[in-house]
Nucleic acid binder design. Structure first.
Lengths: 201, 201, 201, 201
DNA sequence: AATGAATGAGCCTTCATTCAT
DNA sequence: TATGAATGAAGGCTCATTCAT
């Protein structure tokens, strides 16, 4: 089936995929409909995309929603599967999250350049982050933290990691030229430390 | 120059100031030259701004540079003025930084929406962050951390805080609906904890 | 064909009917093929309409032609059925025409917004008007006017009435805020007056 | 001063003039900004027009307003300058109006194709018409008609004339292929007749 | 130093129409 | 007969930038 075949029925998916990477690479406002069309096998500027989406922001919403689904999928996969050894679990989860963020790291970059975005999308992005934090919250709660403390630690944890990734993606350098791996290692240790400290109280 | 002369011949400064707040409020790409001109007392759309800057990104560079200077100023002010009580110092610095970020919180928002920006500016922004992290690095180093550990802790600390602020500014909600103050309190406690732990080794 | 079959195989008719009211309500150029399709039970944007018409202007032609047929029908119904009392006949015809224009007043609105229309359609519309004027021409001729005078009076009569209706439809106000009924009353009296005057010569 | 000279300062006027004739020739919605720009010596599609007008409908408003001013000018010129001989005055005014409409007949055509026009413009057009009718109202009032009757006669008179002109401009043929002059002659006679009739009451 | 005017490139979107199924 | 997909052309509008004054 050639790219110009009018029978293609996966165009919508291709639009979502290409939009996701374009939004991440260049930002939402700097990505033009034409460019999405070109990458998706449609004639740029011909508006073929509008058969599949009614507006540019609707694409963003879909992109965010799909990312959200994957985050929730990861969260569910990790939740309640703990070993009893909090250190081991924390390390495992950290690795899983890093792997996830590596393959999907584009999505983090979307968070910049969202001026003029409808409130619906803003909410969707906020919700997505909340499920991201939730991965840590689940863990911390399972090991006896109270709800509030678990939330605070979760936001702290994912916030620091994503800041690192975001910095790298945006400014084309790591913070203080630190290596990504050493940052993750360090953060892992700190997290364990905090958990033990809290547990001992 | 008398006090009443201060408003004269300062078009360039006004452009920088107004650009800073516009970039922060609406994002770099969503801020038009015309709008900067209007706020700066120039006829919008007449290009009067180009007497002072050769391009829009040059303004951004200047805005970032001035912010950088202020960050460096804060860093120098705080550096080497430690009390000997690490806990007290950490709390003090955290408060100073929060105060600074509150009055300048706009600048954090600039970090989104900077696609299509020249590498020169990217570097300037990266450098600015590095001096931000440096405030904590200085502290940690002064109390005996080795350089690498201090850097890691610095990036961790500022990263987590700025993620929180950025999330709020962009998505119009706090992460997991946590209060800003409880987040800061918690983070302060954790930082002290980590410092002591490291020191005790 | 039974009563319940009436709704079948009449897509073409539905297209014409819906087009007529859409053209009238929103104007020809502001009515999209998609919209006609949606109202006519076809999937909008799928071009199903092109099974029945080769182009948008062909629909307009058909719409105009059907309107023309109805006008001719009215003309034939009224023609040659005169009472001998010219005043009574004139009043009767005026009322019939007003009634007709009320139920079909949409069509008058089509006469705006027809730019870019093929000459064929222009001619059809012109012909339609001519049969409209003809209703009065028939009457005036029957009572002894010469052909030219009857034509002039006919154009005068219908022209003034349709101007009023058109003004109201377009500018959402009546000319000089006159009431429609008083305008019609007045115009009826004038027409009679002119007829008598001519007859008396 | 060449067409490409950036010092030109009559561009706004040229835009208005060219818009007036384009709107009349092709209708408002069928006239593109690019086309107005091309005719006005601006590069089509470059948006140079937007230095002079903030939107397309603002141009239309200006075009209508200027036409309105000229109508009011004519009305004032003709008003209160009557000879005492109603027949002579009516003929004179009719001729003046025909002359005016001939040189400005484009404007009548604007009245079609105005879908999507802001209410402000609709009102302006309605007002313009009202001052057109007013030319006759002034006359009729001066010769003793009561206000209401004068209004009715005024709308009747201008309505019939403009319908004729409009029909010609739109459908490229005269109603019933009547000559314009004979229509005007006839209408002049009828008007006089009506006036006398009313006066004799 | 500032301004009015113009420009070129681009943007999101609409839509009549075509084509393969 | 009807549909999903695609396309080309256009449309109104924005904006960084240039240029002559």
């Amino acid at each position: 089936m050639s790219l110009t075949d009018r029978r293609r029925n996966d165009t919508k998916d291709r639009i979502i995929d290409n939009s996701a990477s374009l939004f991440a690479t260049k930002g939402y406002n700097n990505t033009s409909i034409s460019e999405i069309e070109r990458l998706s096998g449609l004639k740029p500027g011909s508006g073929g995309l509008y058969r599949h989406f009614t507006s540019k922001s609707e694409i963003l919403l879909e992109v965010v929603n799909q990312y959200h689904l994957r985050i929730v999928g990861l969260r569910n996969k990790l939740k309640g599967n703990y070993s009893g050894d909090i250190e081991a679990d924390a390390k495992f989860i950290l690795n899983e999250l890093i792997t996830f963020m590596s393959s999907e790291h584009n999505m983090l970059a979307i968070t910049g350049d969202t001026n003029g975005i409808p409130g619906l999308v803003r909410t969707a992005i906020s919700d997505t982050w909340n499920d991201g934090y939730g991965i840590f919250v689940d863990l911390f709660c399972a090991y006896g933290f109270d709800d509030e403390a678990a939330k605070l630690a979760g936001v702290l944890t994912l916030g620091a990691i994503s800041h690192f990734v975001f910095h790298l993606a945006n400014w084309h350098a790591t913070p203080l030229e630190l290596g990504f791996n050493s940052f993750i290692d360090y953060w892992g240790k700190q997290a364990i430390l905090l958990l033990n400290e809290f547990n001992s109280k």
